[in-house]
Design a protein around this nucleic acid. Structure first.
Lengths: 210, 210
DNA sequence: TTTAACCTTGACCATATGGTCAGGAAGCGA
DNA sequence: TCGCTTCCTGACCATATGGTCAAGGTTAAA
């Protein structure tokens, strides 16, 4: 028995194990897809017997749903930078930084999200139609305001948002391809910095905000 | 070419059925992922008994591999516009148009590709390391040449290419999300035109080529 | 110590799935 | 028509997987 396990027994065993399982599940779902993932694999990765997973999460679907929801929360948070910014340069610049950082720190989550949406969002369709739709409409209005104020060129706000999502998430979802094209090496700190700078430069100049 | 293949070209049955199966497989793999796809589902969609699929494609993996290869061919073709163009505006503009058109006409293929790469490219890793790496290096050199000639701003060519891939493919891979945010309706002709224009405008201005 | 709630897990089950195969049908040149 | 190849398919099999369960262990408050 390890030190960590002993301590956890005093306190929140459930919390500890659920977090452990969710982390393992996120990775396995990302790497194998929902259909390719197996509870056994997740269990092994979490270091628990399979039956124990079903004690905390009744079904594979329930576990998957929790993983997706967790990611969605993180993504919404990244959007905070959009508010309370004087103009597009600060808002969009910070948003790109935040999303790039998430692609770097949570590549598995990004992939699970991408997979979920690609397959028709069977689990989080309601989120798309409520939370995401509202968020998008709000930011689109904000962008339109900046356009009206002459702070940036007249660009369709929705397509700009799509471009922001696409470019930033690409570094997580297609990370393997990028790594391969980078000689089989993950991007270095320097290269991540360059990536962020490139994306920000092109987009901010592209919308006429620089 | 083997004896079997040559003879089979006489009759169109093989060709016809293989195409039928490949089309069904592309759709099912895109919508369910490799793990979630079943030979039965593909068979039903192709209107053939399951055993017949195995007559033409020995294993699920072989069928999947063919689907992925098919897509890769289409993508390479879209890159032709990059060559024989006087400068970045024509080359990149045409490339964006071509890739957007592929996202519109072959959304399933795009999703299968995305899924394959997201899961670590188990099937087409060799393509990434040879064909794609060479193609990318060549275009990066071309972009660098344009920069040296003052035809565009100094941008890291690789990150520019990633952005081109990300933005164009997003319209296929995240088509469901876009459709949801579009009030549940697929993009109209008008909206696709606006999408292309937005992407081209932002990127071409973003790289200082306009 | 007792007790009740919580946690753990090996063994088991029903089902779904990839793949096989034998036997027969259809196409086609001679 | 004959003979050969190609094509078709229902029935079947071995295996993997999600999920269940009952028995037992652990914890902490009373």
């Amino acid at each position: 028995m390890t030190e960590v396990e002993r301590i956890s027994k005093r306190g929140a065993i459930r919390q500890e194990n659920e977090a452990r399982i969710l982390a393992a599940a996120e990775k396995v779902f990302a790497e194998a897809g929902f259909g390719g993932a197996t509870m056994q694999l997740i269990a092994d990765m979490a270091g628990l017997p399979k039956a124990n997973l079903h004690y905390y999460f009744a079904t594979k679907e329930e576990l998957y749903r929790k993983v997706v929801q967790q990611i969605f929360e993180i993504w919404l948070h990244a959007a905070d930078s959009f508010d309370n910014a004087p103009g597009p340069v600060e808002a969009i610049g910070a948003y790109i930084d935040a999303k790039m950082e998430i692609s770097r720190r949570h590549p598995f989550g990004s992939k699970v999200w991408a997979s979920e949406v690609m397959h028709g969002a069977p689990v989080i369709q309601d989120y798309l139609e409520t939370t995401l739709r509202d968020w998008t409409a709000g930011r689109a209005r904000l962008i339109q305001k900046w356009i009206d104020e002459g702070k940036m060129a007249p660009i369709d706000p929705n397509h700009l948002l799509y471009m922001l999502w696409a470019t930033t998430q690409h570094y997580a979802d297609f990370g393997h391809q990028i790594e391969t094209l980078n000689g089989g090496m993950p991007l270095s700190d320097q290269q991540w910095k360059a990536a962020k700078a490139s994306v920000k430069t092109i987009i901010l100049r592209g919308i006429g905000a620089l």
